[in-house]
């Protein structure tokens, strides 16, 4: 009977080919579905690690003040200093290697369910430089595409095919994440790389000489990145959440202002958002022992820098109150 069926199939080459192809796709579908669902389950049961921190920021945090930005946000704003000097509960939603589109997406998810009392957005040099990396890094938000409709518009900037890929495969949102998910579910990660309310301290000390920047590199500005930054500020304003844009120090000397910094400052001005530039603050950059590398402060530097930021915020608030009076 079985042989007869195969014989009949084989006699029609098209039918034979497409039947086999269908069976192959069936196997792939079953494997993709079951592995994808398992990964999704364990993705959201993580208790530590950067994926967990993203989930916590988007779905759980009710902190009064939230820090956004890339690695420089994540490693530069010390929770103990902020919580000691301000009457706010703190959370750091900064993530290594993330860009404006990512920050805006996380902000949208948070504002949908919670209104913080203060938001700090770390803003760096070349923030608006045209590059594929910022879009590629949006992969970090793919696991939330189905459950967070508010971020879809932003994630679609990654590529036009993204909705299709996500509809076709259950595994795709968790691409390259299998070990991170496993580690995030294991207790080992808590001891290996602890964070304090999202903030991850850096312990190294930088030993290289300071760079002097002679010229500002010219580059194409990414209008989508500018849109995301502007939308971030607009969204905060609409929700009446006070927002501060801050540039933390770099271990380099430069008399010239980067194109993105200039543009970022202008846009902040347009929305009446304070823009604090510490990138060349001598009180910080003249101390190599505050730095972990030329882009990042270490834990010691982060504590001192956080104090500086709070001083500026308090001055700003005072000015505001005085002006109002």
């Amino acid at each position: 009977m079985e042989n007869k069926l195969i014989g009949k199939l084989k006699s029609n080459k098209y039918l034979y080919f497409f039947t086999k192809l269908f069976l192959l796709f069936l196997i792939i579908f079953v494997l993709d579905f079951s592995i994808g669902k398992t990964l999704r389950h364990f993705y959201f049961t993580q208790e530590s690690g950067w994926q967990y921190r993203t989930t916590y920021a988007m779905e759980n945090t009710v902190a009064d003040m939230i820090v956004f930005g890339s690695s420089r946000a994540n490693h530069h704003y010390h929770p103990e200093v902020f919580e000691k000097r301000l009457p706010f509960e703190y959370y750091n939603a900064g993530r290594d290697g993330s860009y404006n589109l990512y920050h805006f997406a996380v902000l949208k998810s948070i504002l949908k369910r919670h209104k913080p009392k203060m938001v700090i957005l770390e803003f760096g040099k070349e923030e608006f430089k045209k590059s594929q990396v910022g879009y590629d890094r949006l992969s970090a938000l793919l696991p939330y595409y189905k459950t967070h409709p508010e971020i879809r518009e932003i994630l679609d900037h990654k590529s036009e095919a993204e909705p299709l890929k996500l509809a076709v495969s259950q595994i795709y949102p968790f691409n390259s994440s299998i070990f991170t998910i496993a580690i995030g579910n294991a207790a080992i990660n808590k001891t290996r790389r602890g964070d304090i309310k999202g903030y991850v301290p850096l312990d190294k000390t930088w030993n290289e000489p300071m760079k002097t920047i002679q010229s500002v590199p010219a580059y194409d500005v990414d209008t989508v990145s500018v849109w995301a930054y502007e939308s971030f500020l607009k969204e905060c304003k609409l929700a009446s959440v006070p927002v501060y844009v801050v540039t933390s120090p770099y271990f380099e000397r430069s008399a010239l202002m980067d194109t993105s910094m200039q543009l970022g400052k202008n846009i902040a001005g347009k929305y009446d958002v304070p823009f604090f530039d510490f990138s060349q603050d001598e009180k910080l950059i003249s101390h190599p022992n505050f730095f972990a590398d030329h882009l990042h402060l270490n834990d010691k530097g982060a504590r001192i820098f956080s104090d500086f930021v709070i001083d500026r915020i308090l001055v700003e608030k005072m000015d505001y109150v005085t002006q109002k009076k």
Binding site: I28, L31, D32, I35, I171, Y172, F174, N175, I178
Partner: peptide
């Protein structure tokens, strides 16, 4: 099927 799943799981897109 496993090769395709591996591409989805650990391929760089």
């Amino acid at each position: 099927a496993v090769m395709i799943i591996l591409i989805l799981l650990i391929g760089v897109f």
